[in-house]
Design a protein around this nucleic acid. Structure first.
Lengths: 230, 230
DNA sequence: CAGTTCGGTTAAAAACTTGTCACATTTCTA
DNA sequence: TAGAAATGTGACAAGTTTTTAACCGAACTG
């Protein structure tokens, strides 16, 4: 599985489904939004690695929303690929001027789309968001993809890493297993909800030697919460 | 294979292809960009040894971009050769005034181009940044292109050397195989991703006698990372 | 031009991940 | 407090990724 998450912002459900199909085949994790408003929520929750943004949308248009994204401190580094029905050069220039990273016009071939996504991801990664999340001596560094507990490196599997990364990015907030699956595994990936429990367990176990295991708290009847307060 | 990487910044794809052909034949590693914006990304990613810059480009022109480069702290030392359609003396003077290192006008012969590139590289090299990278007793000296482990010379093949040089220049950061290929082998070189693994293996083997082999760490599911922390 | 080094590829072996299950333990509620 | 519900735990089998060794042709070296 690719470990990149892509947020698709597209109002037409037919196209959304098509994109979903293509991106899933290419093994991206994905998140879907029908409009800018939904997209905002998704971004706040899951931090997508790339946004596929429809040029025209009811409400806040894709262009306007792209501007908003590129102005936001936390969102300006998320690469954007604009998707449009019109294949006009003018639009392309406009898209790039706003700060979009690439531009595809419908109809596009899936391989082309995937190739462009890969290219943008490749490009944006090294200079990418220098994330360094730390809570009470527990540090998650996105660049090195490493977790350290009071300076000591903690050994985690890929899923454990993503799980911790997700939780430490959203402290003090309860998530249901379903939500965790959506955010960490990707939407519409079918795995048992109990799988979350097992991975939580593994993560806790890995953090135990450093005394950080109780930061992932069980909220009985709901799900889990990350917090440094006991 | 030459181990110099050249960044070609040129909007016309025909000329870009021509240059690619010529430079690849001359065995340079190369990176391509269609405009200044792309070029910025490429420079951030791969640190080219020389930039071939088109005089006229849509958006930020070659001239303006050259200025930008020569003002940037990290980029001011990368030599620039301006490429232009007009063979006017005036332009040449202007180019050199900006800080470009040389100037070729279309149409140019490939041998001439190559010769100029070689000349500029030769010139810029000795005065170039005397790189001496060292981490925890492992030292890579760019000038002599030699690696020493606690003073002991380490025998490495050219590719192993470049690989180590790349990794030691970017510690604490994960790179995918694809990124490593782009940056160590050069873009648009087609080799299997597994090749990276094999060379990593060879490098580790060479470093093993000195106990430095575990500095190149596997990040399962992603790629590799260089780090002195275990 | 013979021997050596070098680089890319391949395939099999080894190492590690991961989803799920079955059972244990805890917590809640009637 | 008994029983139900929710969560924790260890083990496993399948799948995936990485390591390793071996091969081969091309490029170098003497």
């Amino acid at each position: 599985m690719q470990n990149k998450q892509i947020l698709v912002v597209e109002d037409e459900s037919a196209i959304r489904d098509m994109l979903r199909f293509a991106l899933e085949r290419a093994e991206f994790r994905l998140a879907l939004a029908a409009n800018a408003q939904e997209a905002r929520l998704r971004i706040a929750e899951a931090r997508p690695d790339l946004i596929l943004l429809d040029w025209m949308m009811p409400g806040l248009s894709g262009v306007e929303y792209a501007k908003e994204l590129k102005n936001g401190a936390t969102t300006k580094d998320i690469p954007i690929i604009m998707v449009t029905a019109r294949a006009e050069e003018e639009d392309k220039v406009r898209a790039l001027n706003i700060g979009a990273d690439d531009y595809v016009s419908k109809p596009f071939s899936f391989p082309e789309l995937i190739a462009r996504i890969q290219a943008v991801l490749r490009r944006s990664m090294p200079g990418g968001v220098e994330e360094r999340l730390a809570v009470a001596g527990l540090e998650v560094d996105a660049a090195s993809q490493r977790v350290t507990a009071r300076g000591e490196p903690v050994k985690l599997g890929p899923t454990e890493y993503r799980l911790l990364h997700f939780f430490i990015s959203h402290p003090e907030r309860v998530y249901t297993r379903e939500q965790v699956l959506d955010r960490v595994w990707g939407q519409n990936v079918y795995v048992e909800e109990r799988t979350v429990d097992v991975h939580i367990r593994r993560l806790r176990k890995a953090l135990q030697p450093y005394g950080y295991d109780n930061m992932i708290q069980t909220v009985r009847g709901t799900g889990y919460r990350f917090s440094d307060k006991v």
